[in-house]
């Protein structure tokens, strides 16, 4: 059980959230090779690390980005998932 400070909805329990997987950048469908696509769909390095993840807050219906350490479960940074954000940078 954890509380996470989530601007703008305040200090919230993790039990109100649903894990939505890694924030990934989807390759361009038009020019993607089969192997690049397979890698996107299936493969990754999933060793312990700080990773950026999608988390859905059920009561408000808002998606958040958590930067979470998958070794310690410490959430280092929280932000509202802003539109198009995942495709930037």
């Amino acid at each position: 059980m954890k509380f996470i400070d989530c601007p703008p909805i305040g200090r919230r329990a993790l039990s109100e959230f649903v894990y939505g997987g890694l924030v990934k950048h989807e390759p361009d469908h038009e020019n993607v090779s089969e192997s690049v696509w397979a890698e996107h769909v299936f493969y990754r390095h999933s060793h312990p690390q700080i990773q950026k993840e999608w988390w859905y807050h059920r009561p408000t219906g808002m998606w958040f980005f958590f930067e979470r350490d998958t070794l310690t479960d410490v959430i280092h940074h929280v932000s509202v998932a802003t539109k198009g954000y995942a495709n930037e940078a």
Binding site: I9, A13, S15, R58, P59, T60
Partner: peptide
């Protein structure tokens, strides 16, 4: 409800889970 209502102030519109159901 797991929400810590010590932080809830009059005038706030709160969306939260109560007994497993989303409420406002």
């Amino acid at each position: 409800c797991i929400y810590d209502f010590r932080q809830a102030c009059p005038g706030e519109f709160l969306m939260v889970l109560v007994a497993g159901v989303s409420v406002w």
